[in-house]
Design a protein around this nucleic acid. Structure first.
Length: 574
DNA sequence: AAAGAATTAAACAATG
DNA sequence: CCATTGTTTAATTCTT
């Protein structure tokens, strides 16, 4: 019951792409290339402006920080203080006006506090960033605004911050700048949108009370509505309670993620080495010292939420919210990747992620197998080598080996595109590309899979599914934008560090009828008898998984996840 | 709403 | 006999 109303709380808003595209293109421009596919809005922002705005931002964050410190908002123990739902506005204090100079700030804050402040600032910016996406068309909203809406913002911030974490990890330092720029830009774009006058429960012409959405022409009407419909009664009280819990939960989570983020940043700053592009899979397996890991939950084998934005977003919120009480874990997974064809590119970009996050890859077995085979030097693999590729590349396939191995075998036998070739040392599997292409509509979508995986890998698996939906919606645009909006930059980015991996991807994308694929007949391998026994095997596979285990344990995990203890390294070491 | 695809499970044969 | 590799059937779930 509580969960349900909580889920209503976080309402998604109609999607819109404008803010997204502008944001992404700007971030790309900052990254060194001019994507500029759509010079949407504030195309140029002078560095001075940026600085200025950043300062303002910092100040604001500082105020927030101090006020929170004072009110003990962030201390976990303070939750009980606000028992009565009537005194909701936990963050009301934030609204109080300001005037703290940077100098004062430095005097007031100890170094650790300053660090915390940085985190705060970042969180704040994240809120705004995300907010940008969800509310592009509208103007008035106080990001710092208190009360229920805060939860929504925080959720988004979580996602984005986690995304950042992951980006950090996946792309190492290179893209950090990009992200940073992305932040500052979006912040600057929106800092002028903060109006003190608006009511935090009122926006877009409708009431933002959880689950209400009543349309109100103007503020007066809204106030009237507020007093009539949301007076102090049992219902409102209950809703407030729920909202409080939501906020608390998210704050806890935010604190954790922030801490992690900082650790990662610290780590990355201290050792700027190892640029490590992920082109050649064979040797990139080993984890140097394995510290930075993408945010993920090793404990819960979370599977992607399946479809793209459409499913994830609002519809699921309302139509399924009642059934979400038993949440996300047990959701049957299925992901037709039929239309997410460019495995190669996605894999190339997210390979580190999949390697460590216990997330089901959004590709079908067939496409994975094909990819594995094509990736091999001779375009042929033994069954066991395919197995090994799976376990090497995907944390997800380090568990439940019986199941997916069976599936792999099943796929190999079933699909005509996989051709078994007898060899001296046994049999190897090859790919009949023509056959493969036959069953493949040339469509492709900008992969929302990343979003889903991210989210699921974050340890949000234990959150209400509607939260995830909200998360997805709020972050989707951001994640979607780079590949979609700026294809040239994305393409050239790939060119930089992708080997023949990309060949297959281009084959997949560019050509749907085999025109570009040179009819890879099964027997076109150059060295017929080169079946090598897979050299080093999974010995390091177990490590990352266990390292990641700490992410989610703070959240209440559904007890039905009995896979928890199966992560033992020995499992798949045949 | 139905068809088709993907996944999962499982039986079974061949092979080493 | 056992484990691995392949093949096949069937049920279920998802997608279109």
């Amino acid at each position: 019951m509580m969960v349900e109303s909580a889920s209503e709380t976080i309402r998604t808003t109609p999607s819109n792409q404008n803010g997204v595209s502008s944001l992404s293109s700007q971030s790309d421009g900052g990254g060194g290339r001019e994507g500029g596919s759509n010079g949407d809005t504030n195309g140029e922002i002078s560095p001075v402006d940026l600085l200025h705005l950043q300062q303002q931002q910092a100040l604001q964050a500082a105020r927030q920080f101090l006020l929170q410190q004072a009110s003990g908002l962030n201390s976990p123990g303070s939750n009980e203080v606000k028992q009565s739902p009537v005194q909701v506005p936990v963050s009301m204090a934030m609204m109080s006006p300001q005037m703290i100079t940077p100098q004062q700030m430095q005097q007031i804050l100890s170094p650790p506090q300053l660090q915390a402040l940085l985190q705060q600032q970042q969180a704040l910016m994240l809120q705004q960033v995300t907010y940008t996406h969800t509310h592009t068309h509208t103007h008035t909203y106080t990001v710092v605004g208190p009360s229920p809406r805060l939860a929504c913002l925080d959720v988004s911030a979580l996602v984005v911050s986690a995304f950042i974490c992951w980006i950090f990890y996946a792309h190492n330092k290179k893209d950090y700048r990009k992200i940073n720029i992305c932040f500052t830009l979006s912040v600057s774009v929106h800092s002028h949108e903060e109006h003190a006058g608006s009511h935090p429960l009122y926006g877009h012409g409708e009431c933002k009370w959880p689950g209400c959405e009543a349309l109100c022409e103007d503020m007066g009407q809204f106030i009237k509505h507020l007093n009539n419909e949301h007076a102090l009664d049992d219902r409102s009280t209950a809703q407030c309670r729920v909202q409080m819990q939501v906020v608390q939960q998210l704050e806890i989570q935010l604190a954790k993620e922030s801490e992690r983020l900082q650790a990662m940043m610290t780590h990355l700053h201290m050792r700027p080495s190892e640029p490590k592009p992920f082109n050649q899979p064979r040797d990139s397996d080993a984890y140097p010292e394995g510290l930075p890991h993408p945010p993920t939950s090793a404990a819960t084998p979370i599977t992607p939420l399946r479809q793209g934005p459409s499913v994830i977003s609002s519809s699921s919120l309302h139509t399924h919210s009642h059934s979400h009480t038993h949440a996300v874990g047990p959701i049957r997974r299925r992901n037709s990747d039929k239309y997410c064809t460019p495995i190669a590119s996605e894999l190339a970009q997210n390979c580190e992620f999949y390697k460590n996050a216990d997330v089901r890859p959004p590709f079908t077995y067939a496409s994975l197998i094909r990819h594995a085979i094509l990736e091999s030097p001779d375009r042929q693999l033994t069954l066991n080598e395919i197995y090994n590729w799976f376990t090497r590349k995907f944390a997800y396939f380090r568990r439940n080996t019986a199941t997916w191995k069976n599936a792999v075998r099943h796929n190999l036998s079933l699909h005509k595109c996989f051709v078994r070739v007898e060899n001296v040392k046994g049999a190897v599997w090859t790919v009949d590309e023509v056959e493969y292409q036959k069953r493949r509509p040339p469509k492709m979508t900008g992969s929302p899979t990343l979003v889903k995986n991210m989210i699921s890998g974050l340890g949000f698996g234990s959150l209400n599914a509607s939260y995830q939906a909200a998360l997805a919606e709020s972050s989707l645009s951001l994640l979607n934008s780079p590949p979609l909006v700026t294809p040239p930059s994305a393409a050239s980015l790939n060119m930089l560090h992708v080997g023949h991996d990309d060949v297959s991807s281009t084959v997949e994308q560019v050509n749907s009828n085999g025109s570009c694929s040179p009819t890879l007949s099964p027997q076109q391998y150059s060295h017929p008898v080169h079946v090598k026994e897979e050299p080093t095997e999974v010995e390091e596979d177990s490590r990352p998984v266990s390292l990641l285990a700490g992410v989610t344990h703070s959240l209440p995990l559904p007890s039905d996840e009995r896979d928890l203890e199966e992560d033992l390294p020995t499992e798949e070491l045949e």
